[in-house]
Amino acid sequence: MSTPLVEMVNIHKWFGSVHALKGVDFFVNHGEIVGLVGDNGAGKSTLIKILSGLYPPDEGKIFFEGKEVKFRSPKDAIKLGIETVYQDQMIIPYLNVYRNIFLGRELEKRLGPLKVLDVKGMKEKSWKLFHELGLDITSLDVPVQALSGGQRQGVVIARAMYFKTKLLILDEPTNNLSIKEARKVLDMVLGLKKAGISCIFITHNLHHVYPAADRIVILNRGKKIADFRKDQITIDQIEEMIISG
């Protein structure tokens, strides 16, 4: 268990002339919850998008379970067991709930020689999922556009929870949620740890992440400025570091 689940070494990323990530080293151990914090523009979203396979790093390497990996697309990351809940909800507004949950990994059944969408199966699994997670949804057939912000967030979380195997990345997951819902998400995250699944939790709200996290990593303007285990640092100290940079 000494090799980290995921290790990112010396990651640089440019957007045009903007140097978004300046040689960041970042790792997550097995069964660990890491809180990734920092002010706006620190590079948190960019870092995890590289980890989910959306962008390639301009410099640096990524290791997964000890082996070097190069992601050509999100599909490669997903195959390894990395699931992501993005800050800009990666959800199709016009499609309904179960089509979104199973997007790209639709359940199929055979209809003679053809493979057809297993709508019944997808709906059943979706209902079960929502009940397990304690999320509220009344109809699976509506386009997700019609749902409230909180319910949409519930859909993306449910999707990640359904498919996750090794690592779950959450980018500002509690943003649109009510207090009750946010608590549910945190409980879910703790439950992950018990199941041996690691989690990266990005947020502005230190009070949300602090109770659940094992480690806190602080980014500031593209650089990692702190990497502490929870018992080594307090919320106030974290805040100080973020503000002072």
Binding site: K75, L95, R99
Partner: peptide, 25 residues
């Protein structure tokens, strides 16, 4: 309507980034 490719078509047209993030080519 009834095949997964169709779902991908609607996804790609509906929100390209989301489809990409979900691993659709």
């Amino acid at each position: 309507e009834r095949h997964k490719f169709g779902n991908w078509v609607y996804a790609v047209g509906g929100k390209r980034d989301a489809a990409e993030a979900m691993g659709i080519n």
